[in-house]
């Protein structure tokens, strides 16, 4: 390990960090599989230890990113759910034309549409969006530390 051609310290650090990262789920996004994909994400997140509102909210947030891909991201992409210690990250990517609007704000109650990204942000620890004309990478995170068994000192 580490015998590659790079002497970039940052890259080695990333390699070390990745060793602790576990991929829990990796699935393709298609319009027909949106519901099945949500159920698969829910099962994987539950198995990772998220429960109650935290579980429901993370699943809805991921679902919102997935339907964004179907509706605005060229229709296909990928979902990757991973765990790094007590941090769950779900990355949703597509190679569509990119999002024109990434401002995340709550529309007035009478407005039709534009709530997906706001929900994804509100329902998780954080939402990150990286978009260009090459595609979009959006990810949401949640902490597993709400579990009563967590007892890690520093």
């Amino acid at each position: 390990m580490g015998s590659g051609g790079t002497d970039d310290v940052g890259a080695e650090w990333n390699t070390a960090r990745d060793a602790d990262e576990v991929t829990l789920l990796s699935e393709e996004i298609t319009a027909a599989r949106v519901t099945a994909l949500r159920h698969a994400v829910a099962e994987a997140v539950r198995a990772a230890g998220l429960t109650g509102h935290g579980l429901e909210d993370f699943v809805l947030a991921v679902h919102e990113l997935v339907i964004n891909v179907v509706r605005h991201g060229g229709g296909s992409g990928e979902v990757r759910l991973s765990r790094h210690h007590d941090l769950l990250t779900c990355q949703v990517s597509d190679d569509g034309p990119g999002l024109r609007e990434t401002a995340v704000a709550l529309p007035s109650p009478g407005e039709v549409g534009h709530r997906g990204l706001w929900l994804a942000q509100q329902l998780t620890e954080g939402l990150t969006i990286d978009t260009s004309d090459q595609g979009t990478n959006a990810s949401v995170t949640a902490r597993l530390s709400a579990r009563p068994t967590v007892n890690e000192g520093r």
Binding site: L60, H63, E64, I67, G110, E111, V112, G113, G116, L119
Partner: peptide
């Protein structure tokens, strides 16, 4: 037990 933003839009649209 579950609705998403498209269903929110449907409900608001139906209300209008």
């Amino acid at each position: 037990t579950f609705i998403d933003s498209t269903v929110l839009s449907t409900l608001v649209g139906a209300h209008h």
